[in-house]
Amino acid sequence: MIQRRHALTVRVTHWINAVALILLLMSGLQIFNAHPSLYWGPSSYTGAGPIFELAGGFPSWLTIPGTQWLAMGRRWHFFFAWILVINGLAYLIFSIATHHVTRDLAPTRSDWRSIGRSIADHLRLRHPQGEAATRYNVLQKLSYIAVIFVLLPLMVLTGWSMSPRLDSVWPGWVDIFGGRQSARTLHFVIAWLLVLFFFIHVFEVIVTGFWNNLRSMITGRYRIEHEQR
């Protein structure tokens, strides 16, 4: 049986988001390579030294452009940063207006009760079949909520905090991250948390029926295997 799985807006914003995040990561590594050291506090030169250093930076196959070219890396980064923000706002407005957040993403009481079993099932690669596969399971819900409402907003905020102009909106607001250089460090760490999410996400997509999942995120149509009882 074929069922409608994902709304058009969710599918479109998902793919725009995927492209933007990959280009943001790679252009971000280009920007990082211009000064491949991280610090804690408002400035880099406090006498304390960096908390992390990557001599030579990231390899060129991970950066956009593929040569040391900070000016162009910044052009890519800020263009796709705007794409990410505008796309994210479109998704949020849609998801709140259509109750996608409350209906599909917010864990229910029974979700919370089944969290232990869900963790065990994920580890054994046992996945919901039939009707249950057309809803997000609790770990899916929690990880999507973490990405959509915590990691991505933090990414945007730590990005803004590196803007000397935006820092003047309310002088000192950057101190909530520990200062501009701490914010830069957090921006870097959260980027890698998003990469970690990406790999787990793609892994789960593959092990729970790659083509069916992929089709449902492109055309919206998802095939349900009827449970054999």
């Binding site: 990082f32 610090y39 408002p42 400035s43 880099s44 030169y45 900070l70 830069r184």
Partner: peptide
Amino acid sequence: TRHDCVEGWSAI
């Protein structure tokens, strides 16, 4: 004030 270089570092 804090000086922010385009390369990513800051100094006060």
